[in-house]
């Protein structure tokens, strides 16, 4: 029996070791590098808090990138969560053809990032792209999308709103976990659809929604890299310069690994602040709700 327990621990080992090698050590290394100057060619030299000072003093793109990333999260996350919720509610029940509809909704999520970026680059093409041509056919003159500083960021939000398969699936599962009896009781009491949602579905889905929102905040900050890298390179005039792309350029194109690490640390702090805020707000809102 002792032997058995020991073997079990061995079976957990690859996962824990992988975690240490691929996540814990890199995290520590990043934290240390944030306080050094390092171009990988010569050994890192200690630089204290000077990276933070230099970034504050010289890097005029960083505030822009932070603001863009924040704006992106604020726009994309609510839209994505609401979209996933609406679709999950709409396609919840088993009916003829529902599998096909669900697959159609899930499909954009399956598409590899690079291909997805290229596809939307074509869709957003201001003159020959299908989106503006369809708009023109119904009498609307479409904007320049990715070439227009006002529309570039919303355009990337728009394309991200189509990739909500993960949230959709999780919320479907959440809906299926709600016992049918609850609704049956409500039906007897003559509850309306809205009341059912308000007093049964929503409260029971809440933990799922909180978890999803937290995860989505994280995902959407990260997922701006590939579209920005492939589609715009941060243009027009930094309108789509997000933190991950800025860090990539600083680190891998300008060989400033030290200040790249500093930005990474800043990004993690920023994301943590958002996560905690979201968590506190959603949680507080639940407690308040408990009284009505």
């Amino acid at each position: 029996m002792l032997n058995y327990r020991r073997t079990l621990r061995w079976m957990l080992l690859p996962y824990l070791m992988g975690t240490v090698i691929l996540i814990v050590i890199p995290a520590i290394v990043t934290l240390i590098l944030a306080f050094t100057q390092y171009d990988l060619l010569s050994p890192p030299s200690w630089y204290g808090f000077n990276n933070f000072r230099d970034l504050a003093q010289f890097d005029d793109i960083l505030p822009r990138a932070m603001l863009n990333s924040l704006l992106f999260v604020l726009l994309a996350v609510p839209l994505r969560i609401l979209g996933a919720l609406a679709l999950a509610l709409f396609l919840e029940h088993r009916r003829r053809g529902v599998g096909l509809y669900r697959t159609a909704v899930y499909l954009p999520t399956l598409i590899p990032d690079v291909a997805y970026a290229l596809i939307w680059l074509w869709v957003f093409n201001p003159i020959y792209g299908p989106l503006n041509q369809v708009l023109e056919a119904i009498g609307i003159e479409g904007p320049g999308w990715l070439t227009d500083a006002r529309f570039a960021l919303p355009a990337i939000v728009l394309m991200s709103v189509f990739q909500i398969g993960e949230g959709f699936v999780v919320l479907l599962a959440g809906l299926h976990n709600i016992p049918r009896d609850y609704y049956d009781v409500a039906a007897v009491d003559g509850g309306t659809g809205w009341q059912k949602f308000r007093y049964i579905t929503f409260p029971l889905l809440r933990p799922w929604l909180i978890l999803l929102t937290l995860r989505d905040v994280l995902l959407t900050t990260q997922n701006t890299f590939t579209p920005a890298y492939i589609m715009t390179g941060g243009d027009p005039y930094y309108a789509t310069m997000f933190l991950p792309l800025h860090i990539y350029k600083e680190t891998f194109e300008d060989f400033r690994y030290g200040s790249g690490a500093t930005m990474t640390v800043l990004m993690i702090c920023g994301v943590s602040v958002i996560l905690i805020t979201v968590f506190v707000v959603l949680k507080g809102w639940r407690n308040q709700n408990a009284y009505d």
Partner: peptide, 8 residues
């Protein structure tokens, strides 16, 4: 212009 250049 910017739009035409990005279109092609």
């Amino acid at each position: 212009n910017a739009e035409a250049e990005s279109a092609e």
